[in-house]
């Protein structure tokens, strides 16, 4: 009986040991490859809202509605280094709305009012057209619909507003529903090492 138990225990230890070694081996193999796993990247040269040459169209708003997050993990950013800081920003204002008494368009473009407008620099008290304006997108409100991106695109704008995947919200789903919905295949999984050359530091 005692002998029997010991043998069974030994056998059990052996099986478990082999199992642990096997799992460990596979884990080590995967660990050696890890660090270059893919992330979902939005290719702005494919996205119809920012793709040059695609004009006279309606904005594609699928990123706002397709994402599994209640607030889409795709959002618009304004690249301040490229923004013309226009007096009348076609992405902030609906430039086809009637002009109000201040000489500005009466309607804003963003359906969620997520863009803020502030005069900056030397502010001219007499002539509001004689100033630069900063346009800042409120990331808590922006749902990535891309309407402003299309309006800012060359030639009507400078193309400083672009859609991006927010990696704080992106769940890194195996099946990205934005990618599945995108008619231009603009969202694709890319390994970190191949996700594009460094352009700038995100928060430097």
């Amino acid at each position: 009986m005692n002998h029997e138990t010991t043998r069974r225990e030994l056998l059990g230890h052996a099986v478990r040991g082999a199992g642990l070694l096997g799992l460990g081996g596979v884990a080590v193999y995967l660990t050696a490859k890890a660090g270059d796993e893919g992330v979902w990247v939005l290719d702005i040269s494919k996205c119809v809202n920012s793709r040059l040459g695609a004009t006279g169209i309606e904005a594609c708003e699928l990123c706002a509605t397709s994402c599994v997050r209640p607030l889409s993990a795709v959002r618009a950013i304004n690249d301040f280094e490229k923004c013309g800081r226009c007096y009348i920003c076609p992405a902030y204002f609906d430039v086809m709305s009637e002009v109000d008494e201040n000489g500005l368009p009466s309607a804003k473009l963003c359906p969620r009012d997520a863009i803020k407008r502030e005069p900056i620099g030397w502010v001219d008290p007499d002539d509001p057209a004689n100033n630069f304006y900063e346009y800042t997108i409120d990331e808590a409100l922006c749902n990535g619909c891309g309407i402003c991106v299309l309006a800012c695109k060359d030639p009507s704008g400078l193309g400083s507003i672009l859609l991006e995947v927010r990696y704080d919200l992106c769940l890194d789903c195996n099946r990205c529903s934005n990618a599945a919905a995108c008619p231009d295949d603009a969202i694709d999984r890319k390994p970190l090492s191949r996700a594009g050359a460094p352009q700038r530091h995100p928060a430097s």
Binding site: G84, C86, Y87, I88, C89, P90, V95, M96, S97, E98, V99, G103, L104, P105, S156, G157
Partner: peptide, 15 residues
């Protein structure tokens, strides 16, 4: 000249 939006008498767009 001034910004007039859709009205062609002035100028439209950002710039």
């Amino acid at each position: 000249g001034r910004f007039t939006g859709p009205d062609p008498r002035g100028f439209s767009g950002c710039c």
